[in-house]
Design a protein around this nucleic acid. Structure first.
Length: 331
DNA sequence: CAGAAGGAGGATGACGCGAG
DNA sequence: CTCGCGTCATCCTCCTTCTG
């Protein structure tokens, strides 16, 4: 058969994403093996069809976001390792709109509602934590005898001040009172520029010292040690948060600190300035995905300051989009 | 035995964009 | 303005092993 037309957009995936997709496919294959062992699936020689059937089986047990990831992984499988029956695979993962398909979607929603009663994975991440609770968490970490307790407290404090994503500390550098960060999530025009510069001159000396010593700590772990540092700190915060705030359904993590930073940024700055601080190309992102400003209203304004260059970069990205999408608005 | 480290496995959030 | 898409980053649990 000829290669089916399955994409409407151009692919821009990185090698990391492709190897990630391979792992997802491996997971689907394992599920197919389970189905076969349980007698719930006939023996199917075509690997791609096996994977698609496993997908169809898992679809009602995961959220739409996860199902979408599974579909992306299967499309990558079809493109990198085409099979004889890929047309059938496409029919399974991307059915034609029809009356029966619409019924199927309704049933899918109902089964998902049934299956997804508890928060799973990243859903348990709190998008806001009060300063009082951060203090409680910090004190609890202080009582921990874990080697990661010190790094965890520094990491949280440094993130509340600067808003960096956890992965961004690896390549961040302090230049006087400016933090220079290589923006993550920078492919597909998602970051305003390659780096962003966060001014920390308004922070007091002890806060700046925490950022500096945390960066030293990150350096001391080196490129290869970053993962173990991150794993250790994240797991410790996970454990301590659950001991400290029993009964909640969402718990603070390192990314929660970025949310809190975003809320204070929104309460302090304009949308363009917030995007510059967070590394976003679009001013809409902070509004859509991050904690609302009302959480931070009445609190101290943010110490961190966006750089003029980054603000310009966000404006340019914004203008470039407007030129293409709304030409009639031009004078 | 409790707490912690390490690793494997599984899931969802957060990005910008284009279509409707 | 909303939603789905392709992509990249983060979250979590479970299990085993180590250590005091």
């Amino acid at each position: 058969m000829s290669a089916p037309e399955m994409r409407t957009t151009q692919l821009t995936q990185t090698r990391e994403t492709q190897s990630f997709y391979k792992r997802v496919v491996a997971r689907l294959e394992r599920h197919a093996a389970k189905l076969l062992a349980a007698g719930d699936m006939a023996e199917i020689p075509d690997r791609n069809v096996r994977v698609a059937i496993a997908y169809a089986c898992l679809e009602p047990t995961v959220t739409e976001a996860t199902a979408r990831l599974y579909r992306a992984a299967i499309l990558h499988l079809i493109e990198s390792e085409p099979g004889e029956r890929d047309w059938d695979v496409l029919k399974i993962i991307d059915p034609e709109p029809s009356a029966s398909e619409s019924d199927r979607q309704d049933e899918l929603r109902a089964r998902r509602a049934q299956n997804l009663q508890t928060l799973r994975g990243a859903q348990q991440k709190a998008k806001w934590l009060s300063m009082a609770d951060w203090t409680r968490l910090g004190e609890a970490l202080g009582r921990s005898r874990s080697n990661w307790a010190g790094p965890a407290r520094h990491w949280i404090t440094a993130t509340l001040l600067s808003g960096l994503r956890p992965c961004e500390w690896r390549r961040a550098e302090l230049d006087g009172a400016s933090l220079v960060v290589v923006n993550a999530k920078a492919t597909n025009g998602r970051a305003h520029s390659a780096t962003r510069t966060i001014g920390l001159a308004k922070c007091d000396r002890t806060e700046l010292a925490v950022v500096a010593s945390f960066l030293e700590l990150v350096r001391s772990y080196g490129e290869d040690g970053y993962k173990s540092l991150y794993d250790g700190v994240r797991d410790l915060i996970c454990d301590v948060a659950r001991e400290t705030f029993p009964g909640r359904d969402r718990y603070p993590s390192l990314y929660t600190a970025r949310h809190c930073f975003a809320a204070r940024a929104k309460a302090t700055y304009s949308k363009v300035e917030v995007a510059a601080l967070m590394g976003h190309a679009s001013t809409a992102t902070a509004g859509r995905s991050y904690a609302p400003a009302r959480h931070a209203r009445g609190g101290r304004p943010l110490e961190a300051e966006p750089s003029a260059n980054d603000i310009d970069a966000v404006r340019r990205a914004q203008n470039a989009r407007n030129l293409f999408s709304e030409p009639k608005d031009m004078p």
